[in-house]
């Protein structure tokens, strides 16, 4: 009987531990994640423009590493940063969103500079959007 109680208590402890771990599970570590796709920013946008549904099935939630030319860098809320990369379109681009802890590395980027950026693809509105970005080069 006593043993059974100990077992139950142990199981409960493990349950709480697992629960706490899951609850506090960190966000995906983009910096160390292997990209699912590596392509040019223009190609990523073209894929969405050609067939949005197919592009969503292919890229949503995936770690995508894009290379392209910086069009614009702008400050965002809470110390973050948005870097917009060129596409074939004059208007649309690929927006790469950097959170505060990664923003410093990207803050010095200049318009016209060639860069490679890794982030999670969330879809397209005017532009294709990558979040939690990390500057690769």
């Amino acid at each position: 009987m006593k043993n059974a109680l100990i077992v139950v208590a142990l199981l409960a402890l493990i349950g709480v531990g697992v629960g706490l771990y899951l609850y506090n599970k960190p966000h995906k570590d983009i910096a160390h994640a292997t990209p699912d796709f590596e392509l040019a920013s223009a190609q990523l946008f073209a894929d969405f423009e050609t067939d949005e549904a197919a592009a969503q099935a292919r890229y949503l939630d995936k770690v995508v590493e894009v290379s392209g030319t910086v069009r614009e860098v702008s400050a965002a809320e809470e110390g973050g940063l948005n870097v917009i990369l060129n596409t074939e379109s004059d208007f649309a681009g690929v927006i790469c969103q950097f959170n505060a802890e990664q923003a410093e590395a990207a803050a010095g980027l200049q318009t016209g500079q060639e860069v490679t950026i890794k982030g999670v693809c969330t879809g397209m509105l005017m532009d294709v959007v990558l979040i939690r970005c990390v500057l690769i080069s």
């Binding site: 899951l22 609850y23 506090n24 599970k25 960190p26 966000h27 995906k28 949503l60 939630d61 969103q97 959170n99 999670v120 969330t122 879809g123 397209m124 509105l125 959007v129 979040i131 939690r132």
Partner: peptide, 16 residues
């Protein structure tokens, strides 16, 4: 106005 649902960021990964 349009917004991508997957681009909402939460403090905790599990909530997201």
């Amino acid at each position: 106005i349009a917004v991508l649902i997957k681009a909402f960021q939460f403090e905790k990964a599990l909530m997201e």
